[in-house]
């Protein structure tokens, strides 16, 4: 019987994705530390990320509403394993904090990193604030992470 073999494949590839108009406006706002949500005229839900149609009411969305860069920690964890960044292929080492943050003025929660990575110092309901990158690029990671407010 032949020895078993396996074939190894390595490849580098690039992709390009169109954002649509709603995400383009949102991303442009991030360059000025401005966060905006789109609000549904039917259910009044304020959507992050903004999108052109309400998935529940199927109504077109055009009412932009301002959202604060402060909010409430609705859920949290500290990840102890390294994790792959799906945009760069780079690894983020643990431990790092993650939270679901309800920004003041939004109904949806935002999944983002936390500056705090000690489980003993994190709790649901804490107030948090965005820490912005110095050089803003118009992407979600213009917010580096959220810090816990006293």
């Amino acid at each position: 019987m032949s020895e078993r073999i396996s074939v190894a494949i390595e490849m580098a590839q690039g992709w390009r994705y169109s954002s649509g108009d709603a995400m383009a406006r949102f991303s442009e706002g991030l360059r000025r530390k401005r966060i905006e949500a789109l609000q549904c005229g039917g259910c009044r839900r304020r959507y992050l990320p903004p999108r052109p149609v309400c998935g529940n009411c199927h109504l077109p969305l055009s009412d932009w509403v301002p959202v604060s860069d402060k909010g409430t920690l609705e859920a949290w964890t500290v990840v102890f394993l390294p994790f792959l960044d799906a945009r760069t292929g780079e690894v983020r080492d643990g431990p790092y904090g993650m939270g679901l943050i309800r920004l003041d003025g939004s109904d949806a929660t935002l999944n983002h990193y936390l500056a705090e990575n000690d489980p003993a110092r994190l709790a649901v309901g804490m107030r948090v604030r965005a820490v912005w990158r110095e050089e803003l690029r118009g992407a979600m990671d213009d917010i580096l992470h959220f810090e816990i407010l006293p």
């Binding site: 945009r87 999944n111 990671d141």
Partner: peptide, 13 residues
Amino acid sequence: PFWDRAVASGALG
């Protein structure tokens, strides 16, 4: 690619 990937933590997170 616009929203989730910048802050992905996988199934575990």
